[in-house]
Design a protein around this nucleic acid. Structure first.
Lengths: 354, 354
DNA sequence: TTGAAAGCGCTAACAA
DNA sequence: TTGTTAGCGCTTTCAA
């Protein structure tokens, strides 16, 4: 490992001079600078970032960190790309960490990145408690932006989509198509995003005077497996829903699976509309109608806010709310006049294996 | 920020003692240790990892890094989970970096993690040149395991699936079903994984004396969009293939999209078999027959190799080859006796929008 | 068992 | 413009 000191010796200058050509080259005379640069490349020297940061250079890290709530959820890959592109533009490395929907993993991870003295952090509001590690980070003055929801107990920049509006639109669309028996597959309500999506569902139902039916309301941890199970329960009901609103892409995937295995045809037997429009939604058969929240934009915007804050630590915090967009494809249809139970129906048509 | 020095002062001991209770508590008397521990928790002290590493503690980082070739590809989320679980078991944090299929990004990233002195690195063989940064890292003695392919020019542990075998099996399966006109959607051949998958295709075709048809061989950067485009080209051929083998999940997604938009029914009009069996394959309609390479296992195994190497730096390097598995679902069928062009056919049946 | 002191590799006053 | 020197926060000999 070549050290700065080796470069200095090789170039016949002091370590300070080498350090200067690295950090403020204008303070070094051209000939000396040339000598040093030559030595650096000759020796293949690369500064040790650890030492650099320890010695106090504020911008020595040039790295920011993104906490991914769940790396299995493709939605976040797009967020990550959005963040990464901005980071790269700012000549900065993005360090990813997976919290796995788990507050303690998040904490571990945040502690690490704090200790690594990153320049800033983008994190979803996983732990909303008053003394969560994120709150402490903010209090310590580390630039933080909250993504995918606002952060309580502290003033930070945040970016998120209007979940309530997006899901209300989705449900409204279903209602306009004539659906009344609309079910929802929803993630845990203690996660704000899901709470709001459920809120949007309720709002649209109420706006149309459709009473909520307890058995059409299914909750569970967000996963494809859970989506399949809940959708199967729903579809096995004596009076099954004519449409299902899935509150994220994992639930959507699970519901699609259930519908196929029950031999249901979409949208003839049942309509489905999802929250999250990721590319694979186009590959479903039929392609899915879904509420798009631009994950890439979310990441992009968050990263931009973060760099703003890094540059101007004193600035007032901002909340940016992104508009969701309903992407209509082929998975929703109108309700047949006499909707009969699609599974138990006795029309002689044999369904696929169950 | 509480420093070690503050703890020492508060506990009325020297900094060395505090450091000892942190690193080798058995060398400190019980009462002193208790005092120090009390001080630590009272003051909420957390050691500065940067300083810790700079001062030379070999295991101060407790972090390993995984380079993800392409974060948009869900396959790698599973790899990441596999790695992460092992890392956590080893009380170690996983730092993720996205190389984006780009050797220079990979290099940037590897330089960062090297400079951060991580304990080890898991990386795919993106850059196979003799003086790639990975090679240098290995030469510097940093534990590296190559995932998803072997690394040239240097001896390292590596884990990968038998791509050749997996794709040969897939194609063989198609052939047994009666297909001859089998197309392949393949990623760039300079990426070893794709080269081998193409090799498996050729091998199975040759083993059955089926000549290769140039126009059924489609290559492109791996992406859903590209998959759709190439599949559309294939299906618009005068004599289209009766089956398509897609060499990764992104191509599969694109091909599914193309088939739907051309109004083709799977497997009646065309069969499809994919490489990569990720959960969403079950959500397709019909559920996809695919070659499974257990991404989670891949990650898991790689991480275990890495920790072995970290513990025993001198050990002989190992290559572990994972067996792929053909998962048969509903997307492949036999070839109709008189296969007619599914798009241009004149059977009165109107297809969906194109 | 404990403390004093010398680094780890770099940066940044302060002098020259 | 350049060099000297004192840290950054921690670990770790070496003595006591």
């Amino acid at each position: 490992m070549t050290l700065l000191r080796d470069v200095a010796r090789y170039a016949g200058v002091s370590t300070a001079t080498v350090s200067r050509v690295l950090n403020s080259p204008e303070k070094v005379s051209a000939p000396t600078r040339a000598k040093v640069i030559a030595a650096i490349s000759k020796l293949g020297y690369r500064p040790n970032r650890v030492a650099r940061r320890l010695s106090g250079r504020k911008d020595a890290a040039r790295m920011i960190s993104l906490i991914i709530p769940d790396i299995q959820n493709p939605f976040y890959s797009f967020v990550a790309r959005g963040v990464e592109d901005v980071a790269n533009q700012n000549d900065c490395t993005l360090i990813l960490g997976n919290a796995d929907g788990n507050a303690s993993k998040e904490e571990t991870y945040l502690n690490v990145v704090r200790a690594e003295s990153v320049d800033g952090i983008i994190a979803p509001p996983i732990d909303q408690s008053k003394d969560s590690i994120v709150v402490r980070l903010v209090q310590e003055g580390i630039p933080v932006v909250s993504i995918d929801g606002p952060l309580h107990h502290v003033e930070v920049d945040s970016v998120y989509v209007d979940n309530m509006k997006g899901s209300a639109e989705a449900v409204q669309y279903l209602i306009q198509l004539g659906h009344h028996r609309i079910a929802i597959l929803c993630g845990p309500l203690n996660y704000l995003g899901f709470k709001e999506r459920f809120g949007g569902y309720k709002q649209a139902m109420a706006a149309n005077q459709i009473p909520l039916v307890e058995r059409y309301l299914k909750f569970g941890q967000s996963s494809q497996e859970m989506g399949r199970i809940l959708a199967e329960e729903l579809l096995a009901l004596e009076t099954p829903p004519t449409a299902i609103f899935t509150s994220d892409n994992l639930f959507t995937a699970g519901a699609m699976e259930a519908m196929y295995s029950l031999g249901l045809s979409i949208p003839n037997d049942v309509s489905i509309i999802g929250f999250d429009d990721i590319p694979v939604m186009r590959s479903y058969n039929p392609p899915l109608t879904a509420v798009r929240q631009s994950a890439y934009n979310l990441g992009n915007t968050a990263a931009e806010l973060l760099f703003e804050r890094i540059k101007h630590p004193g600035r007032k915090s901002e909340k940016i709310i992104l508009e969701p967009e309903l992407i209509v494809r082929d998975s929703c249809g109108s309700v047949p006049e006499n909707h009969i139970h699609p599974i138990n129906r006795d029309d002689g048509e044999k369904k696929r294996r169950v």
